[in-house]
Amino acid sequence: MSGTLYLIPNTLGKRDEADPLAEVIPAGVQQIAAGLDYLVAENAKTARAFLKKLGETTPLARPIQQIEIQELNVNTRADALAALLAPLQAGRDGGLLSEAGVPAVADPGADLVRLAHARGIRVRPLVGPSSILLAVMGSGLNGQSFAFNGYLPVDANERAQRLRELEQRSRKASQTQVFIETPYRNGALLEAMRQHCAGTTLLSVAVDLTLPGETIVTLPLSDWRPERIALHKRPAIFSLLAL
């Protein structure tokens, strides 16, 4: 009988040493994660840091050095995924650990989850912080209909065209459009929206969600100024709704 693939959420950023993990990762999820001896993670170093933090309050089933960690990232070939599931097919439980937030959402783990279903392996998603959902919740924009669009093009002309397309889609369907950017390009993205989208379009920006510096601001683009929120090199979620 195959084991279970647990989808283990991670924190959304580095937390202060005194911050309890239970503020963002429920105790039951911690207990399941602490009992596993096989993990698939985007980065083994990050996974070990998570296990170290976890072990401060929840005893690990094994020392960190004895927990097997295999990496799965954007460079992992599709034909390597089966090997990552081999321990589970042999009856061993395992966990897919996100680099930040929940696994398989804006995350390379989605392909592994799909293959697990194809192989008849039980998949169990666990509760934890999702920056996308938290941003939509805190935005005040349409939470009945929204779409996550990942990263927008880096090229300025292509990015402008994509922004206009998303704004048009939002206006036509009254749908919130959610996207992200590499933190050091946040300012350029904000300026592009101010230039290429209507002033009446609402923009919500959420930064450092669940962290001490958490800030969420929602305004019409006509009222947005760079000084409204410090964006440089801060993880941010952008949500747009055209009226």
Rank of each mutant, 00 (worst) to 15 (best):
E23N: 00
E23D: 15
E23G: 12
V24Y: 04
V24C: 14
V24L: 07
P26R: 10
P26S: 12
P26E: 01
A27P: 05
G28D: 14
G28E: 15
V29E: 01
V29I: 07
V29N: 06
Q30I: 05
Q30N: 11
Q30C: 12
Q31D: 08
Q31Y: 07
I32K: 13
I32T: 15
I32S: 11
I32V: 15
I32A: 08
I32D: 01
A33T: 04
A33G: 03
A34C: 14
A34P: 05
A34I: 02
A34R: 07
G35I: 09
G35C: 10
L36I: 10
D37G: 13
D37N: 13
Y38L: 00
Y38T: 06
Y38C: 00
Y38Q: 05
L39K: 01
L39A: 05
L39E: 00
L39V: 05
V40E: 08
V40P: 03
V40Q: 09
A41R: 03
E42K: 03
E42T: 04
N43R: 11
A44P: 04
A44R: 12
A44V: 08
A44K: 14
K45A: 14
K45V: 12
T46G: 10
T46S: 14
T46A: 15
A47R: 03
A47I: 02
A47P: 02
A47N: 01
A47W: 04
R48D: 01
R48Y: 01
R48G: 08
A49D: 12
A49G: 03
A49C: 11
F50M: 06
F50G: 05
F50R: 11
L51A: 05
L51R: 08
K52N: 12
K52C: 10
K53S: 13
K53W: 13
L54Q: 02
L54E: 07
G55P: 01
G55F: 03
E56R: 15
E56L: 13
T57F: 10
T57V: 06
T57E: 13
T57C: 02
T57G: 11
T57I: 04
T58Q: 10
T58C: 14
T58S: 02
T58M: 05
T58L: 08
T58Y: 01
P59D: 07
P59N: 14
P59G: 06
L60I: 03
L60M: 10
L60Q: 08
A61F: 08
A61Q: 09
A61T: 10
A61E: 11
R62C: 01
R62N: 04
P63L: 02
P63E: 08
P63H: 07
I64S: 09
Q65W: 09
Q65C: 08
I67Y: 00
I67S: 07
E68R: 15
Q70N: 12
Q70H: 15
Q70L: 15
E71R: 06
L72R: 12
L72Y: 05
N73S: 02
N73Q: 08
N73G: 12
